[in-house]
Structures are given as structure tokens and as C-alpha cells.
Nucleic acid binder design. Structure first.
Length: 937
DNA sequence: GATCTCACG
DNA sequence: GACGTACGTGAGATCG
């Protein structure tokens, strides 16, 4: 607010250590570690963008010894030296502070905390307000009216309520409580056996430390009373140690802390020297903010917004919902198009008769130009009574009045393709595919923002990203449910049959909600540190995946049918055999009946009941029985394999085949996984069989068009490379750098074998543990998988951590980070929220900790391949090559390549894929080609 | 609709 | 001392 004096005090010394431990290692191109510097610049830039005060200072610790050591020499005495990787960062952070134009405050003999106390007091006395940027509990004693704290990592304010939650007492009683508790890390002794709960209880009961000490006689617990009496003096010393001195010398006057604007050129130079291009872009410095298209858009948007601002600065949460217009005249249409063009940013939604974008018919289009202001343009509605079959030839008098399709799309095209008008959609890929179809206008919509992806870029794993959920979350509004408009089950009607008033209420609201969400979420990208991820990865993936889905992949349906017949006849033989071995006829596909036969009727041992009380009969159980010569188990395993392949792949894929092209088109979902991976549905083409001979036959049915081959390019050991990078394991780095077999190398290291002495079994064990590590596996889990005792497994794990000590530390760091913040980061800065990390149930919490360990590896790999997917199509175009990307399977890209261009394409694809990230280890890509996917692999 | 099972990385 | 035990997905079948 203008006129209010507001001092921001940044506890830089405190922040440095926390950022160093919270962030994954990062280095400058010259090898200097810079993760804390990066965290600091990122924090400072986003904090300052949001909360610029009138006065600003960065506060540092000047020296290790302070006035407290004079009366208590042990205070903070055995603090370890800062980690080697942190030392060079101190000076850089000073430079950063300078570059940001932030005044620096320090004083010999005083801690940063004392200076913060001093400046806060002085500033409040002068009538201003103070925000302390820190999460240090020792500063919480300073919170009071006019003084608040702000936790820069959790990004939340710390006021009286938060302090009371932490200490159980109000801020003015914090030092009393701390005096009793002490602090092991800082060597503040406190009173033995008194922890946070007891201390708060005592202080609440008696008022302060001296009152507690004066009334020990009343304390019922003998040990507690005795400790309080015996260590009274120690408690008094503790109180002096934790009490901040608000009369420290002030090296700068308050006036000298008045905010001065940073010098952009100096700041940009500093940031570029560190390689922090994303921070440069985020701060709008220099010319790093994306391609020319987005610049054109940005300027157009800001110009339009500036023009529109005095007219309708509608609050995205406050404007009323529901007053929408149905557009049925050319004049109204022209007015909406003009309004949207002038606004520069427009909410857009399409209504269709199918969720399958490639076969959907466009039924209507919605535009939203401001919160609460939206319209629906019906195009292909039919009479409510018309059945689906009538839709194409419905009598003209039966349809509601609406604009003609072709002319309307022609009128909309300039708007939808206007590079100066940003189109905002929820789940843009769907609408873009619909509109790209020739029968639906054949419009190439752009530029586009996608609220679903904006949300996903910031909060993957925290919640879903569907429109209804986002609307409830951010707007506090539940949109009209789709089912309420069309009905459900047998009574469900096509959207084309929905009467125009109901259709408008539903459809225009979607566009309205989408635009409102954009107004709220888009500005958050910057402060969430997710802007680069969104702009450079997620946003560009929309078009890439649209093209892949439209391309599809060819499947030999005739071959599939042959395979199916073979499977059916073999299943029949097996079924007869199974019934004979079981002694009676039963449904082989029923796990319930199978369990009863094996464990009740045949009385076999080794059965396990699940939580529902049913016998478990999964493959692990049956394999165990088969190994004990139970022929029924083997027969069922064989039957199940064929059954799975037949129903899911032979029949499932056949049903999805487009009969005109013999291709299947999957739908890649972009915002479903908690790790940043894609998922593939209807059909899922990311789980096509590969591991068994029978499964390979399915894969052989995926083929290239004549004159082409399929090319498979997959990242070799990408997650283990990320492990070597993230945990910085010299042995693993060396192995990857020199192209050794990573599992053999691990075997040699942990079993202490000469390289030539590593046999298959040793390698297999090492492989199991290597993968187990990135899943957070326990000794128990390893024992189960290796079929060895828990003791032996523990020995192997100990040997592993002994050889690769960085790994244990990295695992602990990830768990701690997740516990502290609720999320972890990938190496590329994506935030992945970990569900259940704060769960009371220890089993669920342990599961969440494993997820926290796995997430950066799975998520990091996902991000690497996404970056490659953004670059490969452009590289192919630039090189004049005719290959198309068809599929992504987590670490693999499948392309369809003209036969004559195989060698050139392979080299280019590999070069792009290997070059998308610079880790401490090289990326390696293996490329194969063949007529079928099986051969290419 | 919940549960089990199994296909993939 | 007991608990349960490797991460992330999607699809099909059975059963209540």
C-alpha cells in the first residue's frame, strides 16, 4: 500500500544452508557448485516481484564467535565446517546480493539474528512494518503486531498462529520455552528431559521461566522437579543465549536501507555468468524470453490488456457465473469476434459428440472474453428428439436455429489463427485435434495456453488437473456437470441433441471458467519457478503429441487375427487340462475359484490371504507352486498369459484399429501422473508386450508403411545415470563415462570382485539392487527378490552404500526434503508433490518416502525425453527428413522413417536425444530399425 | 464399482 | 515389538 513503510529483512546466512540442503547439486559450466546461489537468486527474484517493500536489507553472520561465547564458550562450538561444495557459494551470494541492489548488513560479534532484531525494533519504532524472510525458529520470538516472518522455501507467512503452533505458546513466550528445551545443535543446554510439549505446558501454567523455577515445589513429577531445581542456572543461561539482542550496532541507518532499483545490466551479467538463464528470462531481463512467437503474443496481450483495463478489470473469482449468450446471428458473431480480438486473450472451448478427438464432430464453439462474459456458438445441434443415426440428415425444420457451419468457421478462423490473440483452453490438445480435422474446419489454432498444463507444471501429484477440480479449488465454484446436461447410461444423449439454453449454460461456463483459471494460475508460474518448464516443455508438447496421435501407428490386423486364433485354440487345450488337474470344472479366469481349489480343496500350503480374505493367486504365488511341481499352477500361468494377450492386445487393439488406415491412435494424457511422465490410453501403447516370446508376436504386428521402417531410439539406463548424477557417485560416473556395463561394475564394487570375476549371478544381483535403490527398496524387499535371507540382503545393501556413500545421503536428503516441503524436485526444477508424506500411518508414510526417492529419477527421465520430443520434430524438418515420431514409451521414441533416410535419421535423432541435457554423466541412446516394432527393438 | 491380475518402463 | 515391505502407469475379468 502506498504510504506504508515496510522493511524486508532477508536472513541470508540462514537461507544459504537451508537452500544448499534443499536443492539438488548444480554446477556452473566451470564446475563451481551453485545450487544455493541459484536458490537464493530464484527466491529473491520471486519474493521481490511479489512483496516489494519500501526498505530492504540482506543480513549476514559476520563471524563465528559472538558475544554469547563470552559467557558460554560452548555455544555453537562444535558446529561442523560448512560442506566443501557450499564454501565457494558464500562469495557468490554476496555478489548476488550486490547485483540485486540489496543493502548488506552485518556486525562483528553479533549474529544475523541480533541484527534482524535490532533493525526490526528500530523500524517498528519509526512507525513501519517489518517482514523477516526466514524460517529460523530462533527468530520467531520477534513476531508481533507489525512484525511477521515469511518462510521462503515453504512460501508462507509465519505469524502469531504459526509460532503458537510451533512452540505451543505465543511469540512473546518463545524464549521462555526455548530456555527449557535448549537446542542440541547450537549447544544450548536447556533442562534435561524437558522437551517442547512439557516446556510449553510449564510456561502456560506459570507464565515464564523464573516463575517456573520459583514454583518447582508444586511440580508433581519427581524427576522433572529435580531436574528443574538442579539445572535452574543452566536454564537461565539458555535463556540468555536464545534471547536476541535488539540493541546491536547498526552499520547502516534505516534511511540507507531504502529500496533502490537494481541495475538491470549488472544483474543480468551476474545471472548469465552463473548460467541462470531461467532466472534472467523469469525476471524479464535481456532477450531470453522464448521465441519470436511468444514475444509477439506477449506484447499483443499486454497492449490489449492495457487498453481493456479501465473498462473491465473483473475479478476472476468475483464475477457472477451463468449470464451467457447464445450466438445465432452473423451480427452477434462478428461482435464477439471483434471483442475477443481486441481483448487479445480469449477463453476457448469446443463441444463435440465424442471424447475421441479424431472422430469427434464439432457441435459448437465457446468464447470467453473476460471473467463472467462468455458465449456459445451452436453449429450442429439437432432437434432434441433426433436419434444419433438421424444426425447427418436431420430435417432442417427440426434443428434449432443456428449459424451455418462453414461460414461460421470461416469467420472464426482469423481469430483462432491470429498470432496476436492468445487462446486459452483447458486440455488444449483435445480441442486442437478436433479443430484440426478437415470436417471440423481444419483450423490450426494458435498461440495457445493450457490451464490444465499450467496447473500440472506447478502441482503434479498434489491434486488432479481437470477443469471441475481446478474450478472448485481456485474459484470456489462447481461448474455444471456434463452428466447433468446429457444424462448418463442408456438415457445419455449426444451433445448435439442438448437444447440450446442448456448447452449454452454448460458450454459457455467452461470457457468462462477456463479464462478465469488462466487469470489466476498463469501469474503463479513465475513465483512457483515453473515458468520455464511450462513454456519450454509442457506447452510445446501439445502440438508434438497432437501430431503423434493424429499419425498413429500401423497394425497388421490380419496377423493379429491369426495370433488370436492360435491363442484361442491353445487356451482351450489348457482349459481342459486345468479342469482335469483340478478334479472339476471351474472358471479358470476367476482368482477366487482358483484360490479355493488350490488352497481349500487341494490343501496346498503356501497360500496367502489378502486383506479381503481371498486367497492370493498372482503370478508370484503360482510360480512358487509350479517350482514345487504343482502342474496345475504352471497350466494356469500359461493360460493366463494367453488370456491376457488375447483380450487386452489381440481383441483390444483390433477394436481400436481405424479400418480406413489400419492404424491405431492412442491418446497421450499429459497431466495424469505424479512424476511428470506421460500416460497412454485407448489404447495404451506404452505396455505392448515385449518380455515373452508370445508377447513378441503381438509386437511384430506393429509395422511400418511400405517404403518405410520403424525406428526405436531408447535412452540407455537413464534412471541410473540420473542416480549417478544426482548423488554424484564417482564410481558410477566413471563407469558411464567409459561405457562399462553398469551392473557388472556395481557387482565388482559391492562384492569386491575383479572385473573378470563377475559372473551372471553377481551381475543379476547387482542389477536388482541398482533398480531397488531407485525405488527406495528395503533389505526385506531385496531379500524377497533375490531369494536370500534378510541378513544377507542387509549385508549387500550396506556394502552398496559403503561403496557409494553419496547415494545414502541423497536418499536421506530426498526424504527430508519431501517431509519438510511436501514435494521434491527433479534435476530440471520440476516440483513433484508427494502424497501421504505427512501421513500418521507409518506404512503409508514409508510408501510416500519411497515415492519421494523414486520421483526425481522417474520424473527427471520423463523431463529429458520430453525435451527431446520437443526438439526432434524440428530437427527432422530442418534437415529435410521425412520421418515422423509416432510413440513415446517413457525412455523410448518410436519413429516411422523413409527407408532411404534411415542412416541420416538415426544419427540426427541420437544427436538430439543425447544432447538435451548436460549431466555429470553422458546420456546414451541406442537406435534400432526394422519392418516391425519387434525388429526395431 | 471394487478388487485382482498383469502388461509395460 | 509389530506392521508391511520397490516406483509409476492402464486395461480386462470377475463378483457383489
Amino acid at each position: 500500500m502506498p504510504g506504508v513503510r515496510h522493511l524486508v529483512l532477508v536472513d541470508i546466512s540462514g537461507y544459504i544452508f537451508r537452500a544448499f540442503h534443499a536443492l539438488p547439486p548444480m554446477t556452473r559450466p566451470d564446475g563451481t557448485p551453485v545450487n544455493a546461489v541459484f536458490g537464493f537468486t530464484q527466491m529473491l527474484s520471486s519474493f521481490l516481484a511479489e512483496h516489494r517493500g519500501s526498505h530492504l536489507a540482506g543480513v549476514f553472520d559476520a563471524s563465528r564467535t559472538t558475544f554469547r561465547n563470552e559467557f558460554y564458550p560452548a555455544y555453537k562450538a562444535h558446529r561442523p565446517d560448512p560442506p566443501e561444495e557450499l564454501v565457494p557459494q558464500f562469495a557468490l551470494i554476496r555478489e548476488a546480493t550486490e547485483a540485486f541492489g540489496v543493502a548488506q548488513v552485518e556486525a562483528p560479534g553479533f549474529e544475523a539474528d541480533d541484527l534482524i532484531a535490532t533493525y526490526a525494533r528500530a523500524f517498528v519504532e519509526s512507525g513501519g512494518e517489518v517482514t523477516i524472510v526466514s524460517s529460523d525458529k530462533d527468530l520467531m520470538q520477534l513476531v508481533r503486531p507489525g512484525v511477521q516472518m515469511y518462510d521462503p522455501i515453504k512460501r508462507r507467512a509465519i505469524r502469531e498462529a504459526e509460532v503458537a503452533e510451533k512452540f505451543g505458546v505465543p511469540p512473546n513466550k518463545v524464549i521462555e520455552v526455548q530456555a527449557l528445551i535448549g537446542d542440541a545443535v547450537d549447544n544450548v543446554p536447556g533442562v534435561p528431559k524437558i522437551g517442547p510439549k512439557t516446556a510449553a505446558e510449564l510456561i502456560l501454567a506459570y507464565g515464564d521461566l523464573e516463575a517456573v523455577l520459583a514454583n518447582t515445589a508444586q511440580i508433581k513429577q519427581p524427576m522433572r522437579r529435580q531436574n528443574l531445581e538442579q539445572y535452574a542456572e543452566q536454564a537461565r543461561i539458555s535463556k540468555r543465549l536464545v534471547t536476541l539482542d535488539d540493541q546491536a550496532p547498526m552499520s547502516l541507518t534505516i534511511d540507507e536501507l531504502a529500496v533502490r532499483p537494481p541495475e538491470p545490466a549488472a544483474l543480468e551479467k551476474f545471472l548469465r555468468d552463473q548460467g541462470f538463464r531461467s532466472v534472467v528470462a523469469r525476471m524479464g531481463l535481456g532477450d531470453a524470453a522464448g521465441d519470436s512467437g511468444s514475444r509477439a503474443r506477449n506484447s499483443a496481450v499486454s497492449a490489449a490488456q492495457a487498453a481493456a483495463a479501465p473498462v473491465a478489470p473483473a475479478d476472476p473469482t468475483a464475477a457472477p457465473f451463468g449470464a451467457y449468450e447464445t450466438v445465432t446471428t452473423p451480427e452477434a458473431l462478428a461482435a464477439w469476434i471483434a471483442e475477443a480480438t481486441a481483448a487479445g486473450v480469449v477463453g476457448l472451448d469446443t463441444e463435440t459428440d465424442s471424447l475421441d478427438a479424431l472422430n469427434a464432430r464439432l457441435v459448437g464453439v465457446c468464447l470467453a472474453t473476460a471473467p463472467g462474459r462468455a458465449c456459445y456458438i451452436p453449429l450442429r445441434h439437432v432437434s432434441a428428439g433426433a436419434s444419433q443415426g438421424d444426425m447427418l440428415e436431420v430435417p432442417a425444420e427440426a434443428a434449432p436455429p443456428q449459424l451455418p457451419f462453414e461460414a461460421t468457421m470461416a469467420a472464426l478462423r482469423p481469430l483462432l489463427e491470429d498470432p496476436a490473440v492468445l487462446k486459452v483452453l483447458q486440455h488444449a490438445k483435445y480441442d486442437l485435434e478436433v479443430l484440426a480435422q478437415p470436417g471440423n474446419g481444419g483450423i490450426a489454432v494458435g498461440p495457445v495456453d493450457d490451464t490444465m498444463l499450467i496447473s500440472y507444471a506447478m502441482e503434479a501429484g498434489k491434486h488432479g488437473h481437470g477443469m471441475d477440480e481446478l474450478s472448485r479449488l481456485h474459484l470456489g465454484h462447481t461448474p455444471v456437470p456434463y452428466d447433468q446436461v446429457t444424462g448418463t447410461g442408456r438415457a445419455r444423449i449426444s451433445f448435439a441433441q442438448v437444447p440450446l439454453d442448456k448447452a449454452t449454460a454448460y458450454a459457455a461456463e467452461d470457457a468462462d471458467v477456463t479464462l478465469r483459471l488462466w487469470h489466476i494460475l498463469r501469474p503463479q508460474l513465475r513465483e512457483a519457478g515453473a515458468l520455464a518448464l511450462y513454456e519450454q516443455v509442457e506447452r510445446r508438447m501439445v502440438g508434438v503429441l497432437r501430431d503423434m496421435e493424429i499419425a498413429g501407428i500401423k497394425v497388421d490386423g490380419v496377423e493379429l487375427a491369426r495370433i488370436g486364433e492360435d491363442f484361442v485354440s491353445r487356451m482351450a487345450v489348457l482349459e481342459t487340462e486345468i479342469h482335469r488337474l483340478a478334479g472339476r470344472v471351474f472358471a479358470v479366469g476367476s482368482p477366487k475359484q482358483l484360490g479355493e481349489i488350490l488352497f481349500d480343496e487341494m490343501q496346498l500350503s503356501g497360500g496367502r490371504k489378502g486383506k479381503s480374505g481371498a486367497w492370493g493367486t498372482d503370478a508370484a504365488v503360482l510360480e512358487e507352486l509350479a517350482a514345487r511341481d504343482v502342474p496345475l499352477a504352471r497350466a494356469v500361468l500359461d493360460w493366463r498369459q494367453l488370456s491376457k494377450l488375447k483380450s487386452t492386445y489381440v481383441d483390444g487393439l483390433t477394436a481400436q484399429l481405424d479400418p480406413r488406415t489400419n492404424r491405431v491412435h492412442t491418446d497421450f494424457s499429459m497431466a495424469n501422473t505424479s512424476t511428470g511422465r506421460l500416460a497412454s490410453t485407448e489404447p495404451n501403447l506404452q505396455n505392448i508386450p515385449v518380455r515373452t516370446e508370445e508377447g513378441q508376436r503381438i509386437r511384430r504386428a506393429f509395422v511400418a508403411e511400405p517404403g518405410h521402417v520403424l525406428m526405436s531410439a531408447d535412452y540407455s539406463q537413464i534412471e541410473l545415470r540420473l542416480l549417478a548424477h544426482l548423488a554424484d557417485v564417482p564410481a558410477l560416473r566413471e563407469a558411464f563415462e567409459t561405457g562399462q556395463d553398469i551392473h557388472s561394475r556395481t557387482a565388482a564394487d559391492i562384492f569386491r570382485l575383479a572385473p573378470e570375476a563377475v559372473d551372471k549371478e553377481a551381475r543379476r544381483r547387482a542389477k536388482t539392487i541398482n533398480f531397488g535403490i531407485i525405488y527406495g527398496m528395503s533389505a526385506f524387499g531385496l531379500a524377497g527378490r533375490l531369494g536370500i535371507g534378510a541378513g544377507e540382503a542387509k549385508g549387500i545393501i550396506d556394502a552398496y552404500f559403503g561403496q557409494y556413500p553419496g547415494i545414502r545421503a541423497a536418499m536421506e536428503r530426498l526424504k527430508e526434503e519431501a517431509r519438510l516441503q511436501g514435494y521434491v524436485f527433479t534435476s530440471f526444477g520440476r516440483r513433484l508433490w508427494i502424497q501421504d508424506i505427512g501421513a500418521k500411518d507409518p506404512v503409508r508414510r514409508a510408501g510416500a518416502e519411497r515415492a519421494a526417492i523414486n520421483a526425481p529419477f522417474q520424473g527427471g527421465a520423463a523431463e529429458i525425453i520430453k525435451r527431446a520430443m520437443v526438439r526432434v520434430p524440428k530437427a527432422l524438418r530442418d534437415a529435410g527428413l521425412g520421418a515422423r515420431m509416432l510413440l513415446q514409451v517413457h525412455d523410448e521414441l518410436v519413429l516411422e522413417v523413409p527407408e532411404a533416410e534411415v542412416a541420416e535419421t538415426a544419427a540426427l535423432v541420437r544427436q538430439v536425444m543425447e544432447g538435451v541435457a548436460t549431466l555429470r554423466v553422458p546420456l546414451a541412446v541406442e537406435v534400432g530399425t526394422g519392418r516391425s516394432w519387434a525388429e526395431a527393438h
